[in-house]
């Protein structure tokens, strides 16, 4: 009998084990829902699966009576557009400043302390300022997300760039590399996969800031809808929306992971 620490489940058993917590959660929900609805048929807290499905159908397949739009997809598109713009913006800022700070000691001396301070500003604390200065439109929401995650990516990439073995940089110089070539041919190519890692880790924060901004000032969006129907205790809307947001976030994370291993095969080879 090997030690527990040396027992590795095979592919099939690992999959089964991974499913267990999900099954437990679903079972607990069904049980709770059943018990509560048996006591009070009008209970709104834990709706039955059939209620959830029919509400989701109303939102995702039927036009809203008042606006004539299919709310679920309008909300989804609005939120996705915001978060994707913010992620692209943050990645660009993170890459540009992270590289410059990590690679050039002069830029590091000038900007690293500033970025360190800026990244400590709680983004939600300056949300009112953003709304006052930038208005209640899209710009303020995207600014919130970008302010929240870009400094983190900048610092992460700066650290990673500075972590490259000095031997590599010296070697490149003996091969005739200029500063520009060092950055574009040696440092930048090694930063791409790290940028993807950084984005994956920032994704949770990006969604957090998105929902927060939408909850406060918006006319559509996944976060807006959740906070809107909260007034009616509409758990049958909130729960599918939360599940949908989770699925979207999971898929984005998964896509980035696939992209990383496809585009940068050398990163998985380290011995």
């Amino acid at each position: 009998m090997p030690r527990l620490i040396n027992r590795h489940p095979g592919r099939g058993p690992a999959l089964m084990l991974g499913l267990v917590p999900f099954i437990v959660l679903i079972f607990a929900y069904l049980l709770g829902s059943h018990v509560r609805l048996a006591a009070n048929p009008d209970d709104k807290l834990l709706p039955t699966p059939s209620t959830l499905m029919s509400t989701l159908h109303t939102y995702a397949a039927e036009e809203d009576v008042r606006s004539g739009q299919v709310l679920f997809w309008v909300d989804t598109m609005a939120s996705l557009e915001r978060i994707l713009i913010a992620l692209v913006l943050s990645a660009s800022i993170g890459l540009a400043f992270g590289l410059a700070i990590g690679a050039l000691p002069v830029v590091r001396a000038a900007l690293a302390p500033f970025v360190a301070v800026v990244s400590m500003i709680p983004p939600l604390a300056i949300l009112p300022i953003l709304f006052i200065v930038l208005g209640l439109g899209e710009v303020a929401k995207i600014a919130l997300m970008t302010l929240g995650i870009a400094p983190v990516i900048v610092r992460d990439l700066a650290l990673r760039a500075a972590e490259l073995p000095s031997e590599q940089l010296i070697k490149a110089q003996t091969l005739g590399a200029s500063s520009w070539q060092l950055v574009t041919r040696v440092i930048l190519p090694q930063m791409w996969p790290r940028l993807i890692d950084s984005l994956r880790l920032s994704m949770g924060c990006a969604w957090l800031f998105l929902i927060a901004a939408e909850a406060i000032a918006s006319t559509e969006g996944l976060g807006y809808r959740i906070f809107l129907v909260r007034r009616y205790l509409a758990m049958d809307v909130i729960l599918p929306y939360v599940a949908w947001i989770t699925l979207l976030a999971f898929l984005m994370d998964w896509a980035l992971k696939i992209l990383r291993s496809r585009a940068f095969p050398w990163t998985d080879m380290s011995r």
Binding site: E167, K171, Q190
Partner: peptide, 11 residues
């Protein structure tokens, strides 16, 4: 220069 290690470009 050839160092003991780390002087290749992994990418």
């Amino acid at each position: 220069i050839v160092f003991q290690r780390y002087s290749l470009f992994p990418h």
